[in-house]
Amino acid sequence: MLKFISGRLLQAIPVLFIVITATFFLIHSAPGGPFSADRAVPAQVIKALNARYHLDQPVWQQYLTYLGDLAQGDFGPSFKFPGRSVNEMIFGSLGTTAELGLYAMLVAVIIGVLAGVVAALKPNTAQDYVPMSVAMVGICMPSFLLGPLLVLVFGIYLEWLPISGWGDIPGDKILPAITLGASYAAYIARLSRGGMLEVMTQDYIRTARAKGLPEHIVIIKHALRGGLMPVIAFLGPAFAGLLAGSFVVETIFQIPGLGRFYVQAAFNRDYTMIMGTTIFFSVTIILFNLLSDILATWINPKLRHQSGGAES
């Protein structure tokens, strides 16, 4: 197990290196510097700014400096918000996004697994078709459409829930969490239905029933463990999707999180901020993929004996 984890961590290093290098050179190949697009600024001010941010040095030297700073965990200063560092801005908004992501994940897993298991218990009946049709709607309804529609119905017409903000008014976290989690709930419902259907035909389930175990024990103790394997494998990629989804959801609901910051930085061409968040997102995505793999091997010992676990 330890070997597996350290192997995967070692594998993550070249990936991260590629991310950092590619992002750096992409940004530095962009036409115009970060200060040239603005209003007319005196030439010497630009020069001073360039000197301050080392933009007057050759690119490779800037690259080495950046790598050096990065090794010490320093993402550098923000170009658009003078006096604030990228670190400050990332960690200031990280909590909000993490909370949103956590709630969305809870919505997705609880609703998804419940719906999937319920559907798999009586395949090809109404109990199967209804949740699965709803799941299909969830998959075909992108978050940037679902969010506004929920706001329109529950926020504006019914006036049950607040339509924006985060933690200001009670209940304002409900709609964003549902919006972000809905399509993952739908995927998880399909995955857990498929997994459960396959497991329920296995011999050991028949054995468990033959022993006279009550049906709910058979399902909860015996079938779920195998049936949820596809769901666990999906959690890593789902997390990456949640991050991207947070761009939209935080924009719609005006939540001061990392996703909204990233979109704003992209529009402002705040290059250090884009670079910092890109690297930060990459690290978290890689870590969560690793976690999801570890969880999968922990639940299914068969995977431990396969080489390296390159699948996923």
Binding site: I18, L26, I274
Partner: peptide
């Protein structure tokens, strides 16, 4: 070749697409 695919898989592509669209 598959090693390369594995590495590319691990990249956060959505973010890269946004980056590309912003820069170019």
């Amino acid at each position: 070749m598959m090693r390369l695919v594995d590495i590319l898989y691990a990249l956060p592509f959505m973010i890269f697409i946004i980056l590309l669209m912003v820069i170019f």
